[in-house]
């Protein structure tokens, strides 16, 4: 994954739990640099290790960490100066979810080693939508839930309900989330 993701994990931990905890996580993950370079690809194993060790150090399950990180990611990218890019994807939750692939494609132009997940929507109603999520990586569904919550906040949706209605298997090839507001 690109350094931008790891930077976001670092910022989340430092902001919510302090620099000492981050130093502990970094040490356990055998990462010795002071900084992540946003546009530099890092091994996926490092990101997994950071999440795993954050779970150990902060005493929370990895799922909770991943979900918190997903939610924080939306806020983080906007604050880091990529708000206009997010704006490109739409002005509402359904529109944004519809344009997620377009957004990733644009980012892929800049970050050629990006291995982005794929999203598509179905069964859209005024108050609900179903999101199909396909990824080559395992165990990222809590982050997707967090991302949807973050988007809900971005579009000022007060109450949002996310239900994981389909687990990925060899036949269906994707997870499906039902989002209601």
């Amino acid at each position: 994954m690109y350094g931008l993701v790891n930077k976001a994990i670092q910022d989340l931990v430092c902001e919510k739990f302090g620099k000492d905890k981050w130093a502990e996580i970094k040490k356990l993950s055998n990462f010795e640099d002071d900084f992540f370079i946003g546009l530099q690809p890092y091994p996926d194993s490092l990101t997994y290790s950071l999440v795993h060790n954050a779970s150990k150090v902060l005493g929370a399950e990895s799922n909770i960490i991943m979900e918190a990180f997903g939610e924080y990611w939306i806020l983080y990218t906007a604050n880091e100066g990529y708000g206009e890019m997010l704006n490109l994807a739409g002005n509402s939750l359904p529109e944004f979810l519809n344009n997620l692939d377009m957004l990733h494609n644009r980012v892929n132009n800049i970050m050629p080693e990006l291995v982005a997940p794929q999203f598509s929507t179905r069964n859209e109603t005024p108050n609900s939508i179903e999101l199909e999520y396909r990824s080559k990586r395992e165990g990222m569904t809590p982050m997707v839930i967090g991302l949807i919550r973050g988007l809900g906040k971005r579009f000022n949706i007060e109450k949002i309900q996310i239900t994981h209605i389909q687990e990925k298997n060899e036949t269906n090839g994707c997870h499906i989330f039902k989002i209601e507001w």
């Binding site: 546009l39 990529y82 206009e84 890019m85 644009r106 132009n109």
Partner: peptide, 14 residues
Amino acid sequence: IAEYVFLQQASTKG
């Protein structure tokens, strides 16, 4: 232009 702005932003951040 979108990619350019993104790249510019990433470059500035970099």
